[in-house]
């Protein structure tokens, strides 16, 4: 019971600290912008730990953060293998193939009006569908190994990427197009020098959305069949064995991989679209 009371104290303390930071003179500094969410996160984890211990919550319902951390540290080789199988082989290769294919298709769609009129509504429609559902079919076609996961990822990232790139390639204003016309520029000159750079913010938007979709696709596809490794496989089998600490360890890996992947793309975006108002800030 003491621990539960202690948890309440920690919550009040954390909140009080953040209130002081938020209303203090340094509220708009970078340090506070980093510190406040950090304090909030630490508070949550400490309360989680205290409540699980204080209320003696069963390990099969919610393991304490310390238990998860220990499991994480002890299973690094397994976690690494799963990471390579699911993220590197499945998600990453599918992401590259899917985004690149969508980019090429977007160029074709942009070039021929008929394709844009016909394919774009279909693409918009498909982008809103539960595409993970294709996983059982693709697993049947491409086998249990990572190839089928990559295929699911390709299908998942293709349409959002297509729609974003096509929108981006149409972003150049009429005046900018007229300027290229007055130079008697060829199609490819105006594509490379005007439309592609102007499309970059949109393309990166598609690339960023696709990072999360790629991870979702690769992990969920493993629920439909996989070799005896991979993050989705580990999650579903560990859930079956009620070793939830392992499940949480995998989720930590997924979270780290997700943020790192997204962060990487966002960093490249910052370097490429430094000129865009949203990046100048």
């Amino acid at each position: 019971m003491i621990l539960v009371l202690f948890a309440i104290v920690v919550w009040v303390l954390g909140w009080w600290l953040n209130s002081r930071l938020a209303s203090g003179p340094y509220a708009d500094t970078r340090l506070v912008r980093f510190l406040a969410p950090f304090i909030f996160g630490v508070t949550i984890i400490v309360i989680w730990e205290l409540l699980v211990r204080g209320l003696e919550v069963s390990l099969v319902i919610l393991p304490a953060p310390s238990v998860i951390a220990v499991r994480f540290a002890n299973s690094l080789p397994i976690l690494w293998e799963d990471f390579v199988q699911t993220i590197i082989k499945g998600a990453f290769s599918g992401y590259i193939i899917g985004c690149f294919a969508a980019f090429l298709m977007a160029i074709a769609v942009d070039r021929w009006d008929f394709l844009r009129l016909g394919l774009l509504p279909v693409g918009n429609f498909v982008a809103a569908l539960p595409i993970v559902g294709t996983a059982p079919i693709l697993v049947m076609w491409f086998g249990f190994d990572w190839h089928s996961k990559a295929a699911v990822v390709v299908v998942m990232v293709f349409f959002p990427m297509l729609v974003n790139t096509v929108a981006g390639l149409r972003e150049a204003t009429a005046m900018q197009r007229d300027l290229m016309e007055t130079y008697a520029a060829t199609y490819w000159q105006s594509f490379l020098k005007l439309r592609l750079p102007a499309a970059m913010p949109f393309i990166f938007n598609g690339l960023k959305i696709s990072t999360t979709l790629a991870l979702i696709g690769a992990i969920v596809a493993e629920f439909f069949g996989s070799p005896t490794l991979g993050m989705g496989f580990r999650i579903s089998t560990s859930v079956g064995q009620l070793s939830l600490d392992m499940v949480w360890a995998e989720i930590v890996v997924a979270a780290l991989a997700g943020t790192a992947f997204y962060g990487l793309v966002a960093m490249i975006e910052k370097a490429v679209t430094f000129w865009h108002p949203s990046q100048r800030g």
Partner: peptide
């Protein structure tokens, strides 16, 4: 390429420096 055209707005490309903007027609 008999004429240069100046529009209502400057319409410079934000991803190019001023010098690179002026080079645009020359590159083409």
């Amino acid at each position: 390429r008999a004429y240069g055209y100046v529009f209502q707005a400057a319409g410079l490309y934000p991803w190019r420096t001023i010098a690179k903007n002026i080079k645009l027609p020359l590159e083409i």
